[in-house]
């Protein structure tokens, strides 16, 4: 089995240098992964599937990960000359920057033909978390992604282009949000709450229809 660096180099040679990046995993498991550019991902996946040295014919696990926008605070030290003529002062300024978030799809690939024991992990990232959340579906390459990509779509909201049947799978069809996202908050107007009370009642009040302006006489139903 080739190392991940070799696989990366072969992909870069075949599909262009910018299409693949190696992501190292600092943990003890040392399962590193390849980040693929979305527009070339399906071709690369087909290459991984068909290549006689790799033959990654089995996509074991496909899943999503949510990376919300992250605020990073960096402290920068600068030296400023003292106007009074004393020694230079060291001034610390804190710079806030927002690392844009993304949604990620992760695939764990094995080879049944070659009986590989270590997974080859590929991942793809969406441009952002709000309006550009499409990724190419890998179901045409590995059928086992069919239900799993539906699940990612359902729970994370990644839209897979080229998926034969992209519908919700675990939540019901009318459900609106994507509950596995980190910023998901549960609805506060549970339909199944027969007698709202306490906190639930307070939160549910926002959803009550506004009473009509014309008031009916008292005592009338």
């Amino acid at each position: 089995m080739e190392t991940l660096e070799q696989i990366r180099d072969r992909i870069a040679a075949k599909f262009g240098a910018g299409t693949v990046t190696l992501i190292t995993n600092p943990g003890p498991s040392a399962q590193h992964s390849l980040l693929l550019v979305a527009h070339a991902a399906r071709d690369i996946a087909r290459f991984l599937h068909d290549d006689p040295a790799l033959r990654l014919d089995y996509c074991s696990n496909a899943t999503g990960v949510d990376w919300p926008d992250k605020e990073i605070v960096e402290t920068v030290k600068t030296t400023q000359p003292d106007p009074a003529g004393g020694p230079d002062k060291v001034v610390e300024t804190k710079i806030k920057r927002v690392q844009p978030g993304c949604l990620e799809a992760v695939y764990h690939l094995y080879s049944i033909a070659l009986k590989s024991a270590a997974p080859v992990i590929i991942r793809m990232r969406t441009a952002n978390r709000t309006d550009d959340v499409t990724l190419p579906s890998l179901t045409p390459v590995w059928r086992s992604c069919e239900f799993q990509e539906r699940e990612i779509y359902d729970l994370y909201g990644i839209v897979f282009t080229g998926h034969p049947d992209l519908r919700r799978i675990l939540m019901w069809d009318e459900f609106k949000d994507h509950p596995m996202r980190k910023d998901y908050t549960g609805p506060d107007d549970y339909e199944w709450e027969p007698t709202p009370h306490g906190e639930v009642l307070e939160r549910a009040k926002a959803h009550y229809p506004t009473p009509p302006a014309s008031t009916s006489p008292k005592g009338e139903m």
Binding site: N25, P26, G27, P28, S29, Q31, S60, N61, H108, I121
Partner: peptide, 10 residues
């Protein structure tokens, strides 16, 4: 508290 990283075990 495992170190930051990821693992897939099967």
């Amino acid at each position: 508290r495992p170190k930051a990283g990821e693992a897939y075990g099967r």
